[in-house]
């Protein structure tokens, strides 16, 4: 019975087919105009820097609403990140000094290897000009001071 019904509907549609063909022909002519119109629109979008067919405003709104509805957790503001632990870098400005130099004096070579004999600035008055440890090396390094950067320890601390 269903097959007969389908058959009958098929015949009906087939009888309507010539009318449909006329409509399709009109749509075909419209399609040519639509083709050129959309093509020009596409070129305009291209030179505006957009995508060739940017989404409609309605689509964007709908996408936002659906996004909020489907993923509500993504819409909550993210918790503020915990403050990073403060890092304090302590730089120890302690120079390995050869014996006989007062504390606070400039180490040998402080004025550059090109000026080995440069005279350090005068020690400020009012401060004892005497080394409190005249005959001692650095207790942390009893073998003597470490060679400075740019000095060869085997060569008596001279420049290489």
């Amino acid at each position: 019975m269903n097959a007969l019904k389908q058959f009958g509907l098929g015949i009906l549609w087939a009888l309507l087919f010539p009318i449909l063909l006329v409509i399709y022909a009109l749509i075909g002519v419209f399609g040519l105009f639509n083709f050129f119109y959309q093509f020009v629109l596409m070129i305009v979008h291209f030179f505006q820097g957009k995508s060739l067919f940017p989404p409609l405003e309605e689509d964007v709104k709908a996408a936002e609403i659906l996004q909020k509805r489907n993923h509500p957790e993504e819409q909550q503001p993210a918790p503020a990140p915990a403050p990073a632990p403060a890092q304090v870098y302590v730089q120890q400005n302690y120079y390995q000094m050869p014996p006989g130099y007062p504390p606070g004096a400039y180490p040998p070579g402080a004025f550059g290897p090109q000026n080995p004999g440069a005279v350090p600035p005068p020690y400020p008055s009012g401060i004892p000009q005497q080394n409190p440890y005249p005959n001692q090396n650095n207790p942390a390094n009893p073998e003597g001071p470490a060679p400075l950067l740019g000095q060869n320890p085997d060569n008596g601390g001279d420049e290489q």
């Binding site: 389908q6 058959f7 509907l9 098929g10 009906l12 549609w13 087939a14 009888l15 087919f17």
Partner: peptide, 13 residues
């Protein structure tokens, strides 16, 4: 012809 017509109509639908 009737069968073909019905088939075409069915396909269109």
């Amino acid at each position: 012809v009737l069968l073909l017509v019905a088939l075409i109509g069915f396909a269109v639908r």
